[in-house]
Write a protein that binds this DNA or RNA. Structure first.
Length: 219
DNA sequence: AAAACGGGGGC
DNA sequence: GCCCCAGTTTT
């Protein structure tokens, strides 16, 4: 993909995305009344987890508690039960308590708005921190998950080995106007069409801009 | 029966 | 860099 092709590619994705389901995490985040704490916890639950279960698990959890202080009064066992269908539920329940403790001790019960501070919280890495900053605070950030990493490289737009490198490369290359929506566009695209193995290249409208880096089979 | 799944932490 | 966390869905 040539540098200037990104505009056309994003334009097409914005049109095509209507036929796919919107990312559940995006829905959860927006339905959280832009409450950074609820957004942060939703993002934590979504790690390495299929989309639908995240929404249902967060609904059950937020019925129990909606603030860091309330959350600390809920026993770990109860939290584990509420979020059970998501993967790594024991680790995540512990992280939730750890996060709430840190928020109360160091940030007056509020969620910090900088990536550097967010990644110091237990269970929060760069993907989660970027998502909280963009969705929760409307500040520029690039949320690089496995879909963004894979597809950006498949296009040949960047050439990186790890999601961390991808975030760095995209910060330099991707026009800032697309930072916040990039993840929301690539996730449904990656789930429905541009899948990890044998993507649906025959019905994809982006093939003119794609180098198919690493694609061995396609449908 | 495997592989894959919207990462992150501990070592 | 390697291994662990874990249930669910897809191949």
């Amino acid at each position: 993909m040539r540098r200037d092709h990104i505009h056309a590619a994003i334009r097409i994705l914005q049109r095509e995305i209507r036929q796919w389901q919107e990312p559940v995490l995006g829905i959860v985040a927006r339905n959280s009344d832009r409450n950074p704490f609820l957004i942060l916890i939703s993002c934590l639950l979504s790690l390495r987890t299929k989309d639908k279960t995240t929404g249902e698990a967060s609904d059950r959890l937020f019925a129990l508690a909606q603030t860091p202080a309330e959350m600390l009064t809920v026993p770990l066992k109860k939290i584990e039960q509420a979020i059970y269908p998501v993967g790594f539920y024991r680790t995540k329940a512990k992280s939730i308590h750890g996060i709430c403790r840190r928020l109360l001790d160091h940030y007056g019960g509020n969620v910090p708005d900088s990536i550097d501070e967010l990644v110091t919280l237990p269970g929060v890495g760069r993907k989660t921190a970027n998502l909280v900053v963009t969705v929760g605070y409307g500040k520029p950030g690039i949320c690089v998950d496995i879909h963004v990493h894979r597809i950006s490289n498949r296009w040949g737009y960047i050439k990186t080995e790890t999601p961390e490198e991808s975030e760095e490369a995209l910060r330099k290359k991707l026009p800032e106007q697309y930072w916040i929506t990039f993840n929301d566009l690539l996730v449904p695209f990656g789930q429905n069409l541009c899948q990890p193995v044998s993507p649906f290249c025959s019905t994809c409208k982006l093939t003119a801009y794609c180098d198919r880096v690493g694609v061995t089979k396609s449908r």
